[in-house]
């Protein structure tokens, strides 16, 4: 009990500090007093402009992306009972990339409903493939191979699409592919918020299933759960979260696969009542931290620097590898 309290308070403090840092530091040096003033009484000056049009949207994007990917990764790991599952490994992020690439080539701007819609659709499509594979093959190893292959396949489709295109859409797509929290604007951030909330609710109402699913579908059925319905609900929620994040921030690697393990290290429980919010908070903190680096360093490079050691740890410890 004490561990939970300390864990959540520590995470909350870290997140608040990182939020403050996100608002205070950036390419342009703004004194702290000006930041506070721009925050509480925004005017027409440069400071207010930077704060409200750049830094606040970036902060919100990092918070939403971190929470979504962490929750999406955790629920995928639980449903497929595999510690290495995640939106990336299962190809769901690639599916979203395909959607974005198609939308970009069709000339729809960033952040609009069109890009989000096609990204979510792409993510959903891959989720359906993975779901089909999961019902056909019992071993989760096969599932991961199917996910990885699907990811590779989609990446090549995207490459072919990009190769036959003008340098302008190529440039935009490559920039998007590096991942960034800086592309969300205050005007369309609400779409991101709504998509994430819907995804979180779909997974949140399936808490009973997630806890029982750790022991397999037959066990969950024995506890009186509607396994089929809950599973679909969780997977749709997870792909919506991953799809929305990919649409707005690009394919952000590692949070989905690494953060659930971080959350476990912190809270030492398999109960999703604790683990889900815990992972969401850890994801927020990691994303905010990654977003603090200068825009010239690609976000994915920063996140991989943190993510790779965590995955290494999981593999070496072996605790996760066999689940």
């Amino acid at each position: 009990m004490q561990r939970l309290l300390i864990g959540f308070i520590a995470l909350a403090v870290v997140i608040v500090l990182l939020c403050v840092a996100t608002l205070c530091f950036g390419a342009v040096n703004i004194p702290f007093a000006d930041v506070v003033q721009a925050l509480f009484s925004p005017g027409a000056d440069v400071s207010s402009n930077i704060l409200w049009n750049l830094r606040i949207p970036r902060m919100i994007a990092a918070i939403l992306a971190g929470a979504s990917l962490a929750v999406s990764g955790l629920s995928l790991q639980t449903v497929f009972r595999n510690p290495l599952a995640g939106p990336f490994v299962l190809g769901i992020s690639s599916g979203a990339s395909l959607g974005v690439a198609l939308a970009l080539l069709a000339g729809i701007g960033f952040g609009s409903v069109g890009v989000l819609g096609s990204a979510a659709l792409g993510a959903l499509l891959v989720t359906l493939v993975v779901m089909f594979a999961a019902t056909r093959f019992a071993q989760t190893g096969v599932l991961l191979i199917v996910g990885l292959l699907t990811g590779y396949f989609i990446d090549s489709i995207v490459s072919v699409l990009i190769a036959g295109n003008s340098s302008e859409s190529l440039r935009v797509y490559v920039a998007w592919g590096m991942g960034s929290f800086g592309r969300v604007t205050l005007g369309d951030v609400w779409i991101f918020v709504v998509a994430v909330l819907v995804g979180l609710v779909m997974i949140g109402v399936s808490l009973r299933y997630l806890n029982a699913a750790l022991l397999g579908d037959d066990f969950a059925h024995g506890l009186g759960l509607n396994v089929k319905r809950s599973k679909i609900c969780v997977l749709l929620g997870a792909s919506l979260l991953a799809g929305a994040t990919t649409a707005f921030c690009g394919p952000v690697a590692f949070i989905g696969i690494a953060v659930p393990h971080l959350a476990y290290l912190l809270f030492k429980t398999t109960n999703h009542r604790v683990l889900l919010p815990g992972a969401a908070l850890c994801g927020m903190a990691l994303a905010l931290l990654g977003g603090l680096f200068p825009a010239s360093v690609p976000l994915n490079a920063v996140l991989s620097l943190v993510g790779v050691p965590v995955i290494m740890w999981v593999l070496v410890r072996g605790s996760g590898a066999r689940f």
Binding site: R81, L215, G216, D218, T269, T270, N271, S319, G320, F323
Partner: peptide, 13 residues
């Protein structure tokens, strides 16, 4: 014969 998740404690189960 049910496979158990490696991290789950007796109490949680």
């Amino acid at each position: 014969s049910s496979a158990v998740p490696l991290r789950m404690s007796v109490n949680e189960f």
